[in-house]
Design a protein around this nucleic acid. Structure first.
Lengths: 323, 323
DNA sequence: ATGAAAGCGCTAACAT
DNA sequence: ATGTTAGCGCTTTCAT
């Protein structure tokens, strides 16, 4: 910047003014500086800028993985909203491992992120301490809990699971196999499962398997005969189940009914179209972005937001008359 | 930091040493400083750090959208690799709009990213100028062109399209409808289409529609009768076609064959399992991350890499005897 | 309208 | 092993 100043025959202060588009600079000087900038190919240093303003305009997002439609869809909406507010999105994946999450959070903090969007409400102690220290705003998503210490913007996972279950029960099913992803370190899944147990209207068998199409497809080969319906805690699982069932020669919904949770965009074009509980992840991304931006600009802690989930009954569940 | 130094009765230099984990600090002093740090809840400033080191350890990724499995899968692998090299990933979406891409690139540059990963090889003039100025390393992906000015790490889109076409031809099809996404500002799609035209072994009809399941499903209702096969330039389109065809009462592959390009993880569990051309996007993400990290650390411009695509014949294409 | 100068919070010589 | 000090590249009073 000194070079530019010299080249333009002005002071660094003036160059700084021009660079930040200040109003009180003479037209003539302005263009003289601009010429110098162009001539020297001057590019300002973000770090130096940040050190003075104290701002970086970066938000960190910590998600289990990017390789799952539910999270990437969420992030897409989040990024769009954040960009509207002048923020950029730094993403880091945690694989649902709290220690790794804390590690990545530290990395992002060292980059200078001004706020975090995280998944679920389970944090490692390290993470908590980090946040307390830096006083960084954090918003937890994919979960709603008005009493959580960090504000949550999400849906009630228990309700979502119950919506799926009740649909099955309404349709006359009482012998239900629940296909769940790992509950280990996954409070979203745990909340869904917890809401199911204690249900007295049906006999539930729970199986915990990896959240992959392949795992679900393989698993359904071992379904007990009395089962009439499959409640999959995520659409990926349901999609795998559909595939596996077909491989076994079973028809959905004639031989067995299947319902999922997520309502991925692709689910309604499966065969048969998958009944599912819709999770408003795009809305969640937009809300989280909006709210976090607000929090950072105003300093006022965000309020939790509960987004409604919605049953999408389609063809993969059929009505049966209890035996 | 001054405060910490005072509190610990040492100089700022010593605090700095402790903070950066230097070796030459006495045990005693070290813990004294640590206490002061804890007592004062001191957190170092990333900006100040960056201004001295001249490094930010941030990489920017510019992709059309996060809400498409092909890109999020790619980014997942990229993020993982980058993290291994100590870099963090800043993502921005461009919606395939060169102007928006340039705008977002500027934003990221102002954040301080040390390198870019972009999609395709079409850049706006603004973008080119920006890069020249900042001398930022850029790697173009999802495209292979050894002669491109910016190094490409990707696959040959033309080859991928031809692999799909040849499979159809090999199976006896000669009346083929090509379902393509918008070519406007999308050099990947354009390259696929270009490779197809000039093919003399089949009669090709090309239709350009939005890349959504719904658009494809709707479109297939208007297929000319003589068509025996659908070549979809992406799996999303193929998935929509499968759905739409079923709605029309047509059987795949009995009445009509369908092939896609992408080979998304979900494609082989569709019904019928979708024949597709596999695009190695995870490998591409890992390669791009590795290569860009290398480039930044060593200063040596990256070399282009061509990743092989691979035909995955499955059940959605059947052999026919030409009429 | 412009310039001089004092920082911002840290690192890296250099000195002790 | 520790302290002193000179910056890093910019912004921002405060003068003029």
């Amino acid at each position: 910047m000194r070079d530019v100043a010299r080249h333009a025959g002005v002071s660094v202060a003036t160059v700084s003014r021009v660079m930040s588009g200040a109003s009180n600079v003479a037209e003539a000087t302005q263009s003289r500086v601009q010429s110098a900038v162009d001539a020297l190919d001057f590019v300002p240093s973000p770090a130096a800028r940040a050190i003075n303003s104290g701002r970086t305009y970066m938000i960190g997002a910590l998600v289990p993985t990017l390789d799952h439609a539910i999270f990437s869809r969420f992030l897409d909406a989040l990024e769009l909203t954040l960009a509207d507010h002048g923020f950029s999105l730094v993403v880091a994946t945690t694989n649902d491992d709290p220690e790794r999450e804390a590690q990545r959070a530290l990395d992002l903090l060292n980059l200078g992120v001004e706020g975090f969007v995280v998944s679920g409400i389970t944090r490692s102690a390290t993470f908590e301490a980090l946040i307390k220290r830096h006083k960084t705003p954090v918003i937890a998503t994919s979960y709603f809990d008005p009493n959580s210490e960090t504000p949550t913007i999400g849906y009630d996972n228990g309700t979502a699971a119950r919506q799926a279950l009740h649909h099955l029960v309404d349709m006359g099913h009482s012998d239900i196999l629940v296909l769940s992803g790992p509950t280990w370190n996954n409070d979203r899944t745990k909340a869904r499962l917890d809401a199911l147990t204690g249900c007295t209207q049906a006999r539930l068998t729970v199986r915990e398997i990896p959240v992959t199409v392949a795992a679900a497809a393989d698993h359904v080969a071992t379904i007990p005969a009395h089962i009439t319906a499959l409640l999959c805690l995520s659409d990926v699982l349901a999609q795998g189940a559909l595939h596996g069932l077909r491989r076994c020669g079973l028809e959905v919904p004639e031989d067995i009914s299947v319902i999922g949770i997520d309502d991925l965009p692709s689910s309604h074009s499966l065969w048969p179209p998958l009944s599912s509980v819709h999770l408003p992840v795009r809305r969640m991304g937009a809300c989280a972005g909006e709210t976090l931006a607000q929090w950072i600009e105003t300093g006022e802690r965000a309020a939790p937001i509960n987004l409604e989930t919605r049953l999408e009954p389609r063809a993969s569940v059929r009505r049966i008359t209890p035996a």
